[in-house]
Design a protein around this nucleic acid. Structure first.
Lengths: 162, 162
DNA sequence: TATCATTGTTAGCCATGGCTAAACTATTTG
DNA sequence: CAAATAGTTTAGCCATGGCTAACAATGATA
């Protein structure tokens, strides 16, 4: 046994005392981890799509070599990944040609970019220096819910320079 | 070619206009992604260690079955993972017995817990509801730098109920 | 045009982190 | 104490996301 109590007492949170918030109820706890695992499955995909969108926008084309350099991985890895993106219907690609995003890919790129921007601007508004903000935003963006994102946006608006 | 310009112009940021922050310089961009990849390698480990620490503290013991239930994965997965934690010198375990953390494991558990708590309390202080805050914190905690963490802590202090 | 550097692809390797099924140990209970 | 149940481990499968090395296509340039 040992875990079939359902931890009924998670009430007294919200204290900052940093001490021991009780363990969340089992089911909820499991769902938290599951959410993170799911995010991991999509986040690389989103990163690629977002980067491809950025390259298309800022450079007019997205070549595998550029992606490899910017992501810091080998071309082989990128090539493999592009096949997956293709199968997922996110990009179209003729061999040895620049990539393009499908409609769905574009939607994903926009969404990702928007999330990314909000998180980045939020961190800067919070007082985080630009360099750190960029790094943290890259990691955080896939784990921020829409609710939190909305709150971040509000925070940015309130703290924006006039 | 196509990417050997080093994007010298990232200066004009900080505007919230949400439009197109130019691409970061290649090297820096690659380092951002690398940081995220590295974080991914450690984050599962940290989650396990943190959870084991929590179970030890709140339950007095950490059994594989509990971990499996709370993480929402199979016991086999946990068993395999425990072997890794063992090899990494983070836990000690005699077969078919409860786990314990090594000194190093305890240090990691404490650090992880502290990060987690700061992120969680920060989100709540920001106005995110408890349930969402828990989920987001679980995903975010591994991607928040010490600098940002310090700023979050300051924010919490400033917004704490008296 | 022939050559060569750049770029892209393929094949095949590895580690990680899931899973199920089966085997084994420990504990509880009849 | 034997049998049943609960918990743990092992074996072996799969997908993902890295890598290197070898090969193929493209496109510039001599």
């Amino acid at each position: 046994m040992s875990d079939h109590d359902q931890s009924p007492h998670l009430s007294a949170s919200s204290r900052n005392g940093n001490s021991g918030d009780a363990l969340p109820p089992v089911g909820e706890h499991a769902r938290q981890y599951e959410t993170v695992r799911n995010a991991h499955e999509t986040e690389l995909i989103e990163d690629y799509v977002e980067l491809i969108g950025d390259l298309l926008q800022h450079r007019g084309e997205a070549r595998a070599a550029d992606i490899a350099t910017r992501m810091g991985v080998s071309q082989a890895t990128v090539s493999k990944m592009i096949r997956r993106l293709n199968e997922l219907g996110l990009v179209t690609s003729k061999p040895y040609r620049s990539l393009f995003l499908t409609e769905e890919g574009q939607k994903m790129a926009e969404t990702s970019r928007a999330r990314h921007d909000i998180v980045l601007h939020f961190l800067r508004a919070l007082g985080v220096d630009d360099h750190t903000a960029r790094i943290d935003a890259e990691g955080m963006e896939h784990h921020v819910s829409n609710d939190t994102l909305a709150i971040m946006q509000r925070f940015i608006d309130e703290h924006a320079k006039p």
